[in-house]
Design a protein around this nucleic acid. Sequence first.
DNA 1: TAGGCCATCTGGTCCT
DNA 2: AGGACCAGATGGCCTA
Length: 178
Amino acid sequence: MKTKSRPPRRRAPPQNTEAPPGEQAPERPQPARGLRSRTARAQGARAEGGRRRPGPAGQAGRRESSVQRRLESNERERQRMHTLNNAFQALREVIPHVRADKKLSKIETLTLAKNYIKSLTATILTMSSGRLPGLEGPGPKLYQHYQQQQAAGAAPEAQPEGHLHKYSTQIHSFREGS
DNA sequence: TAGGCCATCTGGTCCT
DNA sequence: AGGACCAGATGGCCTA
């Protein structure tokens, strides 16, 4: 895995939607000076060939309403992906990791989150099944759930210390930018 | 320059 | 029927 410290890339509003300019999402940044927007680039790419080239029915003969539906669908898909990316960003912000200057990739975020959750679970289990006699509620249930997971053959390395070690190792590997 | 990561478009499928 | 979801394709940006 490579180290990345690049600034967030700018996204541009769609160039080809029928929506009036006033309806552009305000949070959408303008394209960097001198750069074509992604939408424009994609449209260019479509014109240049590849899978996105309109089929025979889609060139001059495609009905206006069909084109309109496609544009609306594109916009919804864009919004959906923005929502997904916002969720990724929110997740990044609650996962402790060493290099705050380095933005975690999506796969790194998911992997780190998974192991972070496992390490927290292991920590809670250690506390609830051990030295906290007064603890009632989630502790024993959590422990039962954990044992069931183990019995179901979850992760072979799934020992409480193992999760913490794995998470810690992962953090360090990110620190070194590997 | 290669490889990783990403945004976007697109068509198919699922769901309400 | 229409929207949500998904995965493939594509090309740009960035770093090593």
